[in-house]
Amino acid sequence: MSKILIVAEHDGHTLNLSTAKCVSCAKAIGGDIDIAVLGQGHDAVGAQAAALAGVSRVLMISAAHLAHPLAANWAPEVLQLAANYTHVIGPSTTMGKDLMPRVAALVGVNQFSDVMEVLSPLSFRRPIYAGNAIIDVKAAEGQKIVMTVRTASWPATGSGGNAVVEQRTAQGTAAGHSRYLALNSAGSERPDLQGASKVVSGGRALGSAEGFALIYRLADKLGAGVGASRAAVDAGYVPSDMQVGQTGKIIAPDLYLAFGISGAIQHITGIKDSRTIVAVNKDAEAPIFEIADIGLVGDLFTVIPEIEALLG
């Protein structure tokens, strides 16, 4: 049976949702699931990890040099723990992408990046070429598996778990050559288009830069990022850094709401990995309805205010 270790992502206070997604992937592999929580003075995070359904143990490692997820400091700790496990998993977030390959190299194996499906404990499915091809990849029998989990492919596991929380002592010391200085988060502003879990997007049907205010208002109500089709950018309603699609940004939010966007293939290329796509368009024949999870034929100028009203 597999013994699986997940490396938790957190900010010192709150467990990142990606960890719960890693648990879902670990369950698909099948076996005993532990979570390692590295940090300093982060007991609250340990409790959150322990509450995830399906987790056996939470290993708390607290040390000053582990306070921030510096890969050079974290990787040797994870390596020490890895000795007792068949699989070591991190999320395919910037934290996991930074850390896990360093772990894999120390273990001496190639990593499975962006795992979207588990085929067997040794075989996994992952995207390449920006999702234009999907490959099945297999490790040799007996090899330790190090992987990152493509968060958009996995649901977060539920709560209700009651894992044992164990305190462990850090085995290593600070690497000395790497120092964390600061994190400058985007703050209270609208979330960044690329990282937002919800995105509201508008097309040329908005008719003007002023018309686009409707989109911003709804986005702010939802805490969503704002995107636009190339037609809206070309018409000068919004700046080009808001363009979503083949020549703009490729995004994969949990929820993508497209208003007045016809859905040219160039636009679809930029959103096809979104978890749920909602389309509102006057034209019932618009190609976006071919790929939307939820479609509504209607005038965005009436629909958007209605949605806002319903959201209260």
Binding site: H177, L181, L183, N184
Partner: peptide, 10 residues
């Protein structure tokens, strides 16, 4: 990084 811009010194 996902949370914004992180600065480190190496």
């Amino acid at each position: 990084v996902d949370a914004g811009l992180e600065t480190i010194e190496v």
